[in-house]
Structure formats: structure tokens, C-alpha cells
Nucleic acid binder design. Structure first.
Lengths: 350, 350
DNA sequence: CTGAAAGCGCTAACAA
DNA sequence: TTGTTAGCGCTTTCAG
């Protein structure tokens, strides 16, 4: 900027005024400065601007992982919404370990706000931040005991949708597979349960830490993996599920995750039970492979991109109005009932 | 920092020395300053530090999209490698449009370096940056005509692996589906072709812009989508592929992408051709749904996370040694031959 | 309409 | 061992 000022024979301030379009300035000087800046290929240093204005245009994002499609899609939505208003995403992946440290480091970098998919079990850390008026929007999971902005799927509605679908298909004795390995069940799965039970009063709840088994197998596995693929891993984790279920005359299963649903189907088939004739199985979207499974799998599609978009927008809004009361936004999911007819048939016949 | 200096009764510089652990300082003052800083919850402003040192610890990343698993996984590797050395990822998604602007904006934010999955067809823009000695590592695709660091899959090796696999399975007359919609064929697919042909001298090349069809359908589709799912879309795009192929007595097909491979399988089956008995089909990893398809699909797994890790490490190295000569690192892919036996059988029998 | 000066928070060089 | 000073590049305020 100094060089431009010198070359144009004006002060830094004038250059700034020309470039920013703010403040009174003579048309001729403005043109001259702009031309010189253009020619010199001048680009403002956003870091310096951030330091001065204490507004960086950086938004910190913390997610547990992005290898699965779940957070990748949410992230896509976040980035899109922010790019549209010329903000940038500072991305960190917590991998179940570093959440708080990462949040701190993002704040050190002077992000304007945070979007966090937290795995925290206690509200203390975030309560402190909120008291310091750090703008935060949580996504996907709520932090237990914390009153803060949240954007997530409406899991209750998802439970209702799946229950209604099963009921419409003629099933009557549903089993609900709770899969959590946490001390307190995950809120989202509890919500699904409530929704599910509001339709099926007689639903049977099978509580078992399948998810924990998968994680343990993954950890222990290391190189000597107990299974080649993740789907096989899920199969291993679910192996014990049939005996406890057998005490209940179920005719359909809500398996919480698509991977589990598929494993459950394989498991049932291995025991000579036909799907969906004898027993129906439904999942809940954590992946988009459901297009490809055999037999077709009915599932709930979560509005992932939309969650990201809404979270970003909420955060931007909060930057303008820091006193906005905290609110939870629960977005409706969509039932994806895979027709069992061959999609190809429909396409090739006509 | 000023406040801590005041409270400790020393100069800012001393506080800095205590906190940074650099320069000589009395043990007692050091302790005192550290205690006060701790108590005051002091955290250094990395933005200011960046401005002063002109080293921000920010790495700009540009990818075309992250909804598919491809770049999400690469990104995971990048983030991991950078997090390990306390650097942060500034993520942007170009969505086939804004690549150059995004790169500029990242530079405005004073990133230390860039990792770019470019869709550019011309080297001019990046050549200018490289002349300005901006550290850049490209991933996945090379920019035509540009001599720069690149980390990517060894597509030639991938082509060889698939060809050898097909040969070992007894196939003799392979068809290679080139799917590009670009003026110049994408380098990676050319490499696959070269590798493939080094094994099968008689391979037949079917050149047709299937990929372009898919994109067009996606664009035109809008709400009135011509197909419910992406897999159906691929099927539509491939419909015309069988006639040109029919002129060649092929007994197997290399379909470039898993989605196409699967669509091809369905297409063949719809025409009464059995897979893999009559015709074998192989893909090339762009997704991890191959675990779930029916019939099983043999494919090449690209070392995506590793690409990210290596790219980040290369960039970090280049930050230290700006004069490193540009180099291409091509990482070996892995053949994933899906056994057609039921994985469950293997697990449940014993 | 234009310019001078101060300062965001940190760091590096130099002086005491 | 400690302190003083200057400056990264931009923005704001106040003065001309």
C-alpha cells in the first residue's frame, strides 16, 4: 500500500479510501490510485485487516471426522453458505480426542465464531465460552446440559416416519435396536425411540452397546483386522443380537444405522429368515450406499447439507445480533423407501 | 499481554520471553509471569503473531467438492498431517467455478502454502504463483503444462493391476471405457489406459463423453430429475454404450468409475448377458460402496488418505526448503477383488 | 477532500 | 537479565 501511495503521490489514507470506496475522495485521484493498484497487483492483507478490525471472516469448524459422508456433507453446506458471504472455513477434525484444544486453538486464531459437532459429555467447557459471548452453533449432537444454538435432524420425526412406514407395510411387532456405547444414551437415538414409540406403543427396546463393539474391534484390530471390511465388522458386532431378540416375537427391526441394518439383514438371512417377507429391516442414514444394497434397504435420509447451511446462517446471524436467544433447529428428514423392483426394469422396458 | 506485564511488574518483552521460553530470563520472574498469565487465562493472538512473523500456520486447501468420499478422505489426511505440526486447514470448495478467486483469497489471508486439487486446463495462473515462489502442492490431478509438486495415485499401476486381474481370471478381449468430457482426456485416465494396454496389447478403447452426459443430466434435471438416484443417472448415461461395443467381441470392461461399472453390470444383465460369467466388469475407486454391491465388484482402491498425508508433508518440507525441485509422487493403489462367496458364510460357519 | 498519527497484539533488534 | 523501540499492514479518528 505504501508503494502505491508513493507512486500515486498521495497518502496511505487516500489510497485506502480509494480502495475501500469509503469516505470522500476526488474522482480523479480515485481513478489514478485504482489504476496503479490494479497495475501493481495490489491485494489487501486480510490478516492485518482482521487484527485491526477484530473481525477476521474466519469461522472455526470442529467435526469428529470426515471420512464418512456424514460430516463431509454437512461441511459442504457450511462452506457453501460461508463462501457466499466471503467467509472462510478453518477446519479441524477432533477424532474423538482433541475437541477442546482445537476449539481453543481456533479462538487463538481469532475466528469470528464456531460451528461444532461436539462429542462432549459435559457442558462446563462450552458454558464458559458462551459466557465469554463466543458465538457458537452446535450441529448434529447437543451437548448434554448446555443451552445453546443447535441445528440437527429431527430424530423424533425420523422415528415416526420409519414406524409409520413399517406399520403401513403390515408389520406389527417392531424391535428397536439401541446401539450406543455411551453412559447416557445419545439424545438423537432417544428421540428416535420416542418418535418410534409414539406410533408403536408396543415396540421392544433392545439395549446393547453394538457401537462400542465395533469401535473396540476397530481399535484392537489394528493390522490383524478381525474383518476385511467395515460391513463385516458390523456383522461381527451384531452376532449376539439375535438371541435376546428371540425372546420377543418381533417381525421388524429398526437398526439405527444403515451399516447395522445391512448387517442385520445378512444375519437374519444366515439364519434362514427371509427379508422382508418374514422380518422387515430399516436403517437410518449414515451413508449413501443404500442405493446399492441387495435386498433394498429402506432408510431415513438426513438433511445433511441443509444442516450445514442452516448452521452457518444461524452463526452469521448471531455475529450480527449477539444477544439472540439460543434456539434448536430440528430439520425434517425424509423417508427413502427403496422399491424392490429393479430400477433397470423401469428404465429399459419402455 | 499488557495487563500481565503490569500485574507482574515487568515489561511486555519480559512477559513475552517467559511465555515463549526464548531469551534469557530470571527463573523467579519467569515463574511469576507464567502464574499470572495462567491465572488471567492468557492466550496469544495467533493472528497478530502471523502478521508479525509472516508465518501464519495456515494452509489453504482447494478441492472441487467434498460430498463424494474422494476429497473428503484426502482432506482427512491433510488435516491429520497438519494438525500434528500445529498447523490449520483453511478449506475452500471450488465447485467447478471459483478456483482462481479462491486461491487468491487464501493468499490474501496469508496462508503459508496451498494444497490444490485443480480443475484448471491451463498453467498460466499457477505459473505466475510459482514464480512468486508461493508454495503449492497439487493433488490428484496435474495441471496440464505445469511443472509443480504433485501427489496422486499411480494410475498407470492401477491400469496394470486391473488388466492383470482380468487376465488371471481368463478374460482375453478387454474394452476400456474412456468416459471423459474434456477437450483433452484427463491425464489420470490416459495413464490407466497406458498401464492397461501394457498388459493387454489388444485392448479396445471406447471413447465417449459419458461423464459429460451425467453432468448434463444432473444440471438439466434440476427438480424434474430424470432419475431418482445417481446410480440410475449413470445407467442413463451409459445406455448408448453397448452398440459401439458390440462391434468388438469384448469379454470384459474397465469402466473407470465404480458407479459406471455398476451401471454397466446392470446394463449387461438387462441384455441377458451374465456377469461375470459372460463378461467381467471392473471399476476404479471413487466411493466405498463396492462393499455392498451385488454382484460383487472388483475395483482399485486409491490411497486417498495417504495422498493427503503426503501432500501435506511435502508442502511442509517445501516451506522449509523453498528451492526444492518440483516432483511428482505417485502412490500405488491396491486391487480389491471382491470374492463372490458370501462373506457371511465364512463368518458363520466356523 | 486530504493527511497525519495512533494502535490492533505480537516479535525482533538493539540498548542498558 | 531486563527494557525500549520500532514495525508487520490495515483502519479509524481527528485535524487541516
Amino acid at each position: 500500500m505504501d508503494e502505491i501511495a508513493r507512486r500515486a503521490g498521495v497518502s496511505k489514507t487516500t489510497v485506502y479510501r480509494a480502495l475501500s470506496g469509503q469516505g470522500r475522495i476526488g474522482e480523479d485521484t480515485r481513478r489514478r490510485v485504482l489504476d496503479i493498484a490494479e497495475e501493481a497487483g495490489y491485494r489487501p492483507n486480510r490478516l492485518a485487516r482482521g487484527l485491526r478490525r477484530s473481525r477476521t471472516g474466519l469461522i472455526g469448524v470442529v467435526v469428529p471426522g470426515i471420512e464418512g459422508q456424514f460430516y463431509a456433507r454437512v461441511l459442504e453446506g457450511i462452506e457453501k453458505a460461508l463462501q457466499d458471504v466471503d467467509h472462510r472455513v478453518l477446519l479441524t477434525v477432533s477424532r474423538g480426542e482433541q475437541e477442546y484444544e482445537l476449539v481453543e486453538s481456533l479462538l487463538d486464531m481469532q475466528v469470528d465464531g464456531l460451528i461444532v459437532a461436539s462429542e462432549s459429555d459435559s457442558p462446563d467447557f462450552y458454558e464458559r465460552l458462551l459466557r465469554r459471548r463466543v458465538p457458537i452453533v452446535f450441529i448434529d449432537r447437543e451437548v448434554p446440559g448446555l443451552h445453546a444454538d443447535l441445528v440437527a435432524t429431527d430424530h423424533f420425526a425420523g422415528g415416526v416416519l420409519l414406524a409409520e412406514h413399517l406399520r403401513d407395510k403390515g408389520y406389527r411387532k417392531p424391535a428397536f435396536l439401541s446401539v450406543t456405547d455411551r453412559p447416557r444414551p445419545i439424545g438423537s437415538i432417544e428421540d428416535r425411540w420416542c418418535g418410534f414409540r409414539s406410533v408403536f406403543r408396543n415396540a421392544c427396546l433392545l439395549h446393547h452397546p453394538f457401537m462400542g463393539s465395533v469401535k473396540r474391534l476397530l481399535r484392537e484390530g489394528g493390522d490383524a483386522a478381525p474383518a476385511e471390511t467395515f460391513s463385516e465388522l458390523c456383522l461381527l458386532a451384531l452376532r449376539g443380537a439375535l438371541e435376546p431378540l428371540a425372546t420377543f416375537p418381533y417381525d421388524c427391526v429398526f437398526a439405527q444405522y444403515d451399516h447395522f441394518a445391512l448387517a442385520m439383514i445378512h444375519l437374519l438371512q444366515a439364519h434362514g429368515i427371509r427379508v422382508p417377507q418374514d422380518v422387515g429391516v430399516v436403517g437410518f442414514d449414515d451413508h449413501d450406499f443404500t442405493e446399492y444394497t441387495e435386498p433394498p434397504l429402506t432408510t431415513i435420509r438426513q438433511p445433511l447439507r441443509e444442516i450445514g447451511l442452516q448452521a452457518a446462517q444461524r452463526l452469521l446471524r448471531r455475529l450480527e445480533e449477539p444477544d439472540l436467544p439460543a434456539a434448536a433447529l430440528r430439520l425434517p428428514p425424509r423417508l427413502v423407501a427403496r422399491r424392490s423392483s429393479d430400477p433397470l426394469a423401469a428404465m429399459e422396458q419402455p
